[in-house]
Nucleic acid binder design. Structure first.
Length: 220
DNA sequence: GTTCCGATTTTCT
DNA sequence: GAAAATCGGAACA
């Protein structure tokens, strides 16, 4: 394993990189280094897992049904911006906006292999270490200190993606996406095949919950 | 080892 | 009022 230390420097990937088809960007982001500088502390990791979210053709996308709303507006905006949103009451998701301005598209960063600022990441993750620092989309945002304040920011300052040696294409796997109510069959998830920092998106297939029972939850 | 369930906030109808 | 691109803890085998 002659793995050189990944450097948190180098060519910054900006709008020109992101202004391309979302699936292409999602695939090519694997192996690059995502760095944040929140609170003056550098934290960074190699992107090992992504998912592509398209526009109107994609039932799993926030841009699928409605067109532009206050929430998904950023997805239609400038490529190379961050699209951050909050879900399930606890978790932020970090996406990178793709496609030309006016076209919806974004890549969800699902997992990182931490390479810098591990102590800070661990503190933000409640003392956890190793793969548990960032092997899931909610964890990535937490480890990097990302929150809604970063929604719409342009990459290149507090948040930067550095180019790196691209992994061999044979080490990239594709699968259906994880956790969606719809559109999970589309092969829009990309990950490094043998990387232990990839989230498996739960341990097994998650069949839809009881189709109907009659006993809805007893909230008041 | 696996599987199930609740938490808790934002956004949208 | 309901759903959501999730996580972590508890229960069971």
């Amino acid at each position: 394993m002659a793995q050189a230390e990944p450097r948190v420097t180098g060519v910054r990937l900006l709008a020109a990189f992101f202004a391309r088809p979302t699936e292409t960007v999602a695939r090519e982001l694997l192996g690059t280094v995502l760095a944040s500088r929140v609170g003056g502390v550098l934290t960074a990791g190699v992107i090992v897992e992504t998912e592509a979210y398209l526009g109107s053709d994609d039932p799993g996308s926030h841009a699928a049904t409605k067109g532009v709303t206050a929430r998904n507006r950023v997805m239609y905006g400038q490529p190379g911006c961050a699209y951050v949103y909050f879900t399930y009451g606890n978790h932020h998701m970090l996406n990178l906006v793709t496609e030309a301005e006016g076209t919806a598209g974004a890549v969800l960063v699902r997992a990182l292999e931490p390479v810098a600022g591990l102590e800070t990441m661990s503190a933000r993750r409640g003392g956890r270490t190793g793969p548990e620092l960032a092997n899931g989309p909610g964890k990535v945002a937490a480890a990097l200190g990302i929150d809604l304040a970063h929604n719409g920011v342009t990459l290149g300052e507090d948040l930067v993606v550095y180019d790196a040696d691209r992994p061999d294409p044979s080490r990239i796997s594709t699968s259906g996406r994880v956790g969606l109510g719809a559109g999970h069959d589309l092969p829009l998830r990309f990950y490094l095949t043998d990387n232990r920092y990839v989230s498996r998106g739960r341990t097994g297939p998650r069949p839809p919950r009881r189709a109907a029972g009659g006993q809805t939850r007893g909230t008041t």
